[in-house]
Computed example of a mutant assay.
Amino acid sequence: MNKIFRKQQLTPYEADYAQWCAEQGALLREGRLSDLDRENLAEEIESLGRSDKREIANRLGTLLLHLLKWQFQAEKRKAGWLLTIREQRHQISKLIDESPSLKTYPRKQLASEFEFARLKAVDETGLPEAGFPVDCPYQIADVLNRDFFPGVPWLPDQLIRD
């Protein structure tokens, strides 16, 4: 990449995002702070944190949905549900390891994500809405605990293979 950029030659943020990112990175490395697109660059950096929060919330919602199905449809437990539960816990843990400041974020999102996961569980299971708790019956420590599985105990050979 040409390391000499003139301000008028820089790619506008709206025109080509990938090229804009490459140019902004090069300008930072060269110490050409006055040539940076500071407003858009600041917005992008702030959005990185929001992206991790969205990912944690999405994964938490998926995890809660599968915990509900696991608990309330014990006779239909599938290997895929187990894998999804484990995957979501693992990925949430990785995100928190990479950004320790987000450690309390799953707890803050638990009620909100449970509310939607409950509705999705009703739709996916066909069970009556009244059969599911209105408030999250799980503590966040349990939700994220790799050994926690709600409902009746299970053995791996009891799972329906997908």
Rank of each mutant, 00 (worst) to 15 (best):
L10C: 06
R32M: 09
R38M: 13
Y13H: 10
E43Q: 05
L36Y: 07
Q19G: 03
S93W: 12
A117L: 00
L155T: 12
P133F: 13
K94Y: 02
L102W: 01
P100S: 01
A121H: 06
P12T: 14
E113W: 04
P100D: 00
A57N: 06
A141D: 15
N58F: 05
L110N: 00
A57R: 10
P137E: 13
G80K: 06
E43S: 05
K120N: 12
L155M: 15
A141H: 12
K94L: 11
L64G: 01
I56Y: 06
K76G: 12
V134Y: 10
L68K: 02
K69P: 08
F149S: 14
K3W: 15
S51Y: 11
D123V: 02
E129V: 09
Y105V: 05
V152K: 06
P137S: 14
V134N: 06
E23L: 07
Q24C: 10
E43I: 05
A117R: 00
G49F: 11
L82H: 14
L33E: 08
F149K: 12
T11H: 08
L33H: 11
L27D: 04
S112F: 15
Q9Y: 04
K76D: 15
H66I: 06
D37W: 11
I140F: 12
H66K: 03
P137T: 01
F114K: 02
K69I: 07
L67Y: 02
L10R: 06
P137D: 15
W70H: 01
P156D: 09
Y13W: 09
L119H: 14
A117M: 02
G80T: 02
I140L: 13
L159K: 01
W154G: 03
E115A: 07
K108M: 08
P128A: 01
E98D: 05
C21Q: 14
Q8Y: 12
R107P: 10
D147S: 06
S112C: 13
C136Q: 06
A26L: 15
D162A: 03
S34Y: 14
P153F: 12
E87R: 03
R32I: 04
L110T: 05
N145L: 09
I160C: 09
W81P: 00
V152T: 11
K76L: 14
L67S: 08
I140K: 01
M1P: 09
Q71I: 03
Q139F: 15
Q73E: 11
R29C: 04
R89V: 11
T125H: 09
T62H: 00
L67N: 07
D147P: 04
A22Y: 15
D162T: 01
L33M: 08
E129S: 13
K3I: 15
A18K: 05
N58W: 09
A74I: 06
I140V: 14
L67M: 13
F148G: 05
E46R: 08
K78D: 05
A57H: 13
R59E: 03
I160M: 11
P100Y: 04
C21E: 12
N2W: 11
N145Y: 13
Q109A: 00
S51F: 03
H66Q: 07
T62V: 11
L64V: 00
V122W: 10
G126V: 04
R77G: 00
R146M: 14
P100M: 00
F116L: 08
Q73W: 09
Y138S: 04
L64P: 03
P153A: 10
S93Q: 11
A15N: 13
L10W: 09
F132N: 01
S112T: 13
R59G: 02
